[in-house]
Computed example of a mutant assay.
Amino acid sequence: MTEKTGISYVKGDATAPQGKGVKVIAHICNDLGGWGKGFVLALSRRWPEPEAAYRRWHRERARNDFGLGAAQFVRVTDHLWVANVVGQRGIAPQALDRTRAGGPMARKGIPVRYEAIDAGLGRVAAKAQELGASVHMPRIGCGLAGGKWSRVEPLIAERLIGCGIPVTVYDR
């Protein structure tokens, strides 16, 4: 555990969270409805529900809260939930295959949106408190989204640790 932040760091797989009790696995999604690169592949290998729910949420976005900063909670077992947090605008060109690079889904610059991650983490905190859950995650926003952990870690510390919610970050 980092004394400065209170976040526990472990080597392991965030789709197999450690410890007892109810758990929420938080991860970052894009605002385009795309699911197919990065951590989401590991989620989909374990459970089909988070992907199906995310795609439905995006498809029906005209009638729901889908958008930057939103969070969707999908129960995958009796004591485990997945939080699909929309914290990325578009998809980085390097995340697209070569045939689509530069196409309509690509955006200039990095896709991470720290303010959206912050808002989404606030929603994760509320759900974790409601469930009495701990929160587990990879280094959200720092893979394909292109973010910096030095910007994301303080958001986690403030939104989750600051509310007394235990957080474990998994490094493969």
Results as ranks from 00 to 15, higher is better:
residue 79 H to F: 08
residue 71 A to P: 05
residue 66 F to D: 01
residue 57 W to N: 10
residue 168 T to P: 11
residue 77 T to P: 04
residue 82 V to C: 12
residue 60 E to Q: 10
residue 171 D to Q: 11
residue 74 V to R: 04
residue 74 V to E: 00
residue 109 G to T: 11
residue 132 G to R: 12
residue 127 K to G: 04
residue 114 Y to M: 00
residue 65 D to Q: 06
residue 150 S to G: 15
residue 143 G to V: 04
residue 149 W to N: 02
residue 97 D to Q: 05
residue 95 A to S: 14
residue 162 G to V: 08
residue 112 V to F: 05
residue 98 R to E: 14
residue 91 I to F: 11
residue 121 L to H: 01
residue 69 G to H: 07
residue 121 L to E: 00
residue 113 R to Y: 03
residue 109 G to P: 09
residue 80 L to K: 12
residue 157 A to H: 12
residue 85 V to A: 13
residue 138 P to W: 07
residue 41 L to N: 14
residue 68 L to N: 06
residue 113 R to A: 02
residue 92 A to P: 10
residue 112 V to M: 07
residue 116 A to N: 07
residue 71 A to T: 11
residue 170 Y to A: 13
residue 97 D to F: 07
residue 142 C to T: 10
residue 93 P to I: 04
residue 80 L to W: 07
residue 90 G to H: 11
residue 60 E to C: 02
residue 51 E to H: 13
residue 140 I to W: 09
residue 94 Q to N: 14
residue 109 G to S: 11
residue 126 A to Y: 06
residue 104 P to W: 10
residue 43 L to T: 02
residue 131 L to P: 02
residue 55 R to D: 02
residue 166 P to V: 03
residue 122 G to K: 01
residue 164 G to C: 12
residue 158 E to T: 10
residue 115 E to I: 00
residue 149 W to I: 01
residue 43 L to G: 03
residue 78 D to P: 08
residue 107 R to L: 08
residue 40 V to P: 05
residue 121 L to I: 02
residue 37 K to Y: 13
residue 101 A to Q: 12
residue 152 V to H: 14
residue 127 K to V: 11
residue 132 G to D: 10
residue 39 F to P: 01
residue 145 A to V: 03
residue 151 R to Q: 09
residue 45 R to K: 15
residue 129 Q to R: 09
